[in-house]
Amino acid sequence: RRPMNAFMVWAKDERKRLAQQNPDLHNAELSKMLGKSWKALTLAEKRPFVEEAERLRVQHMQDHPNYK
């Protein structure tokens, strides 16, 4: 499986939080909310998630050198 990108790293915990706050929302609505929230973040706010995604990408390359 591919490593998570920055959005997916961020959305993993954010989706849980949103789902707890909005138990009646379907996954499609949660995804739309997550997309809008991600776009609203500044580059500085996204940076930790971008860095974690890069760390995961490098780790994935080391763990699976033949993955394409």
Rank of each mutant, 00 (worst) to 15 (best):
Q21T: 05
M33G: 02
E54V: 04
P3V: 13
D24H: 10
T42F: 00
E29H: 06
N22V: 06
A19S: 12
K16R: 13
K68H: 00
M8L: 09
F7Y: 12
H26G: 14
V50R: 07
D63I: 05
H64Q: 13
H26I: 14
A53N: 04
V58K: 13
S37L: 14
D13P: 08
N5E: 04
R2E: 05
K39R: 15
H60N: 11
F49V: 02
W38Q: 01
D13M: 06
P3G: 11
F7G: 01
K39M: 05
L30P: 00
S37C: 12
E29C: 02
P65A: 12
P65M: 09
P48C: 04
P23G: 04
H60S: 13
P3I: 10
L56A: 06
M61T: 12
K12G: 10
S31A: 06
W38P: 02
L56G: 07
R57W: 08
H64T: 14
W10S: 02
F49C: 02
P65N: 11
L30T: 02
M4Y: 04
A40G: 08
V50W: 07
L41F: 05
K36H: 11
L30S: 04
P65W: 10
R47Q: 12
E29L: 00
P48R: 05
P48G: 05
R55G: 05
P65Q: 14
E52H: 03
P23T: 08
K36S: 10
A40W: 05
Q59A: 14
E54H: 04
S31T: 13
M8H: 14
F49P: 03
E52G: 03
R57F: 08
R1C: 14
G35F: 06
V9T: 05
M61S: 14
R15Y: 10
E52V: 03
Q62T: 13
S37G: 07
W38S: 02
Y67L: 10
D24N: 10
R55K: 08
E54A: 10
K32V: 11
A53Y: 06
M8D: 15
R17V: 06
R47A: 14
E54K: 06
E14I: 02
R1Y: 02
Q21F: 10
Y67H: 13
V9L: 14
L18V: 07
Q62G: 11
A40Q: 11
A28V: 11
R15M: 08
M8K: 14
N5S: 14
M8R: 09
E52R: 04
Y67A: 15
H60K: 09
L56N: 06
R17N: 01
K12E: 13
A44C: 11
A28Y: 06
D63K: 11
R47M: 10
K12D: 05
L18E: 00
R47C: 06
N5V: 01
K16L: 02
W10G: 01
R57D: 03
A6V: 01
A6L: 01
R57N: 15
R15S: 07
L25F: 02
A6C: 00
E52Y: 06
A53R: 04
K39G: 10
E52S: 03
H26E: 13
A6T: 02
M8T: 14
F7A: 01
V58Q: 13
H26Y: 02
E45L: 04
D13A: 11
N27Q: 12
R15Q: 12
M61A: 14
A19W: 09
N66P: 09
V58M: 13
M33A: 10
V58A: 14
N66H: 07
K16S: 08
M8C: 12
M4H: 08
N66S: 12
Y67I: 09
W10K: 04
R2Q: 03
A40R: 10
R15N: 02
R15E: 05
S37K: 15
Q62W: 06
R17D: 02
W10C: 01
P48N: 00
Q62S: 13
E54Q: 11
A6Q: 03
E14P: 04
F49A: 02
K46Y: 00
T42V: 00
V50H: 12
H60W: 12
K36R: 11
E29G: 09
N22A: 04
M8V: 09
R2L: 07
E45G: 02
L43V: 12
F7V: 01
A6Y: 02
M8G: 14
W10A: 01
F49Q: 01
P65V: 13
A28C: 04
V58H: 13
N27M: 12
L30G: 01
S31N: 13
M33Q: 09
K32Y: 04
M33C: 04
A28K: 05
K39V: 02
S37T: 12
A28L: 08
N22I: 05
K68R: 00
A44Q: 13
A28E: 14
N66R: 13
Q20Y: 04
Q21Y: 10
D24A: 11
A40C: 07
W38V: 02
A40H: 05
S37Y: 08
K36P: 03
P3A: 10
N22Y: 15
R15T: 09
L56V: 07
N22L: 10
E45A: 04
D24P: 01
M8P: 02
E29N: 14
K12S: 11
A28W: 05
V50L: 12
Q20W: 06
H60C: 12
M4I: 14
D13Y: 06
Q62V: 15
F7N: 04
H60A: 14
A28M: 09
D63P: 08
Q59D: 11
